[in-house]
Design a protein around this nucleic acid. Structure first.
Length: 368
DNA sequence: TAGGCCATCTGGTCCT
DNA sequence: AGGACCAGATGGCCTA
């Protein structure tokens, strides 16, 4: 913990030297020495940054320390209350005030952090074991709000890649991996420069994401699980290389992909680890292997992903998919799959609450 | 080891 | 005068 000198601004302090204790006098002489050092070695570049700060502060002490430059603009005469003398009592009082201010500031920041923790629980990718950074939490929350707002506005459920890309706007690679993981997607599908996959969703890479675009709105929902060919291609990838290696050898993926007539960026390696014969939309509230109960969005536990990803371990490939993609950071499907949320949002849960999107909010008003 | 993230201290500003 | 808020500085911790 950095401990700084608690020197008050010298602006409003006049020193009453007679009133100071030995310690205070010692502190003062040190300050004076520093000031003299700065004056005597003003052209020296060996001064530390701290000394520079002292210099800035000392200049407030008065012009008597330096010669006045005639070209320097005239500073208006100081106004305001008369400077108060720094008596011992006042010094103690100021110290106490400073300590109290520090405590308040600490508590304020703790409150801010508590609020951020609460926010973390309400965005996708919540994990107790790997917290999103503050800035990433805010960005993801913003993206999440906009994405959900667009769903309400258009009434269209985006496909998983579209939704994931909306969530990932402006996020770091690690957070993108987490987003992809929570949506059961291959992180590579979120890369704008990705050319390793097929063309059906190419417009997502070529243009900025816009839920209102005719492309998105007119696109019929395509079930990624209805691409049996993909399973073959991804199983090949799984058996040959993990995702980390894939990211290092994109040409390998291109080669594999090109051997199949139909590919979708939605299909992912770990999707193939589950019941691929089921014709299931990712927007459905089922767990991938149908063995885990799903909490609907209305469940209070939906947003609270307390447990870790033991349920993922059977998925096989998750932990080998690169940074932020291991079982130790993934939220459980049964509680954190945002697609479960999407289903519930668009079908029933939100209707009673649409009032929150009334004027004054930057969320589109879907009631109008 | 550099860089990212964080907690804390600090002084300035604004407001009550 | 004092509290809230803010931004800069600093050092610790962690990770790639």
């Amino acid at each position: 913990m950095p401990i700084k000198s608690s020197a008050e601004s010298s602006d409003d302090i006049d020193l009453d030297l007679d009133d100071l204790t030995d310690d205070e006098n010692e502190e003062l002489s040190e300050t004076e020495e520093t000031c003299n050092d700065i004056i005597n070695t003003s052209d020296s570049d060996t001064k530390s940054e701290q000394d520079d700060t002292s210099s800035n502060k000392s200049k407030k002490s008065g012009g008597r320390l330096t010669k006045k430059d005639p070209n320097e603009p005239k500073t208006p005469k100081k106004r305001g209350p008369k400077k108060k003398k720094l008596t011992k009592a006042r010094l103690v009082k100021l110290r106490i005030r400073r300590m109290k201010a520090n405590t308040r500031e600490r508590n304020r920041m703790h409150g801010l952090n508590d609020a951020l923790d609460e926010l973390r629980k309400h965005v996708p990718c919540y994990s107790k074991t790997q917290k999103l950074s503050k800035i990433e939490t805010l960005r993801l929350a913003r993206n999440y709000i906009f994405a959900l707002g667009d769903i309400l506005k258009t009434g269209v459920k985006p496909d998983s890649v579209t939704f994931a890309k909306a969530l990932s706007k402006g996020l770091s690679q690690n957070t993108m991996n987490l987003v992809a993981g929570s949506l059961q997607l291959n992180p590579r599908t979120l890369l704008p420069e990705s050319t390793s996959f097929n063309k059906p969703y190419q417009f997502l890479y070529d243009e900025p994401l816009d839920f209102n675009s005719a492309n998105v709105r007119s696109m019929p929902y395509q079930d990624p699980y209805s691409y049996p060919q993909n399973y073959g291609s991804y199983n090949q990838i799984n058996s040959n290389a993990n995702m980390h290696q894939m990211s290092q050898f994109p040409q390998q993926i291109s080669t594999i992909s090109s051997t199949n007539s139909l590919h979708s960026p939605i299909a992912t390696p770990h999707m193939t680890s589950y019941g691929s014969q089921r014709n299931r939309s990712p927007l459905h509230g089922n767990t991938p292997d149908s063995t885990l109960p799903v909490d609907p969005m209305s469940s209070p536990s939906f947003f609270h992903c307390e447990s870790n990803m033991e349920s993922y371990t059977s998925a096989g490939t998750m932990a080998s998919m690169g940074p932020g993609y291991g079982s130790h950071v993934m939220p459980p499907y049964q509680e954190c799959n945002p697609y479960i949320l999407l289903d519930e949002l668009t079908e029933n849960s939100l209707e009673p609450d649409l009032g929150v999107f009334n004027t004054g909010s930057n969320i589109p008003d879907v009631t109008g």
